[in-house]
Amino acid sequence: MTESQNLEPFVQQVRRDILRQVHAVNSGHPGGSLGCTEFFSVLFKEVMQYDINFKPDGENEDIFFLSNGHISPVYYSVLARCGFFDVKELNTFRKINSRLQGHPTTHEGLPGIRIASGSLGQGMSVSIGAAQTKKLNDDEHIVYSLHGDGELQEGQNWEAIMYAGSKGIDNLIATIDHNGQQIDGATKEVMPLNNIKDKFTAFDWQVIEVNDGNDLDQVRNGLRKARQLTGKGKPTVMILNTVMGNGVDYMMHTHEWHGKAPDDELLEKGLAQNPETLGDY
């Protein structure tokens, strides 16, 4: 089997986990979660070097920050399926007394999480800080981060992008989930981002584009290439062109499922498109 064929069952199970988590509490964000499932799967299963015995300080390992915290369902599923905590805990998503808060947080001590996110636009700065500390500690591991494309409308990002380019933060790989959608509609209608690549280039970043961010081979190649670009004096951004809601036909190519859970009938429809592979929680 190819690497991607090996990973496909994992991806499919994560999609099921996403749908089941949001359905169970009739809330949460399936669209962006599904769009980034392949990215998370490749990153955590194949690319990042980390200790499964979670250490908040993340020393001598690669670390990841999710800036667009609302896509917590995919994050939680992948963390659980990788062994950070029991997959059964996915049952507690967004419920009272849970470590799986609506948006990820360190507050309840969930293994795998090193910063709270949800209020948008803060993760780039945090990632830069963590990358700087790795440099001070002579730790040659990489800091990865993920950001929504709509999230780039938050001004703090541009402070951070300017800083990272100017200061040459070259142990950072930021990924932009470029799905062209946000809550109120298409980003090109709400607040056009225009040419994201040119913007990053102008700020002295190395830019990689992944044409199909839902293709495992392309995501893998993109992340490998990004990794090769580290340590060369510039930060790296990977623009990941994804389809919001990928893998669940009625959720694709629309912003409608950004922050809405499927009802019983649509859940079954979505699950039927992604049969159980590794066992439901």
Partner: peptide
Amino acid sequence: PERFYQVGIAEANMMGIAAGMTIGGKIP
């Protein structure tokens, strides 16, 4: 000088960087 970070007129970014720098044991 190796432990001093000039961030420019960008306080929001400074706070985020400071938060990130704690991960790995620094005291910003």
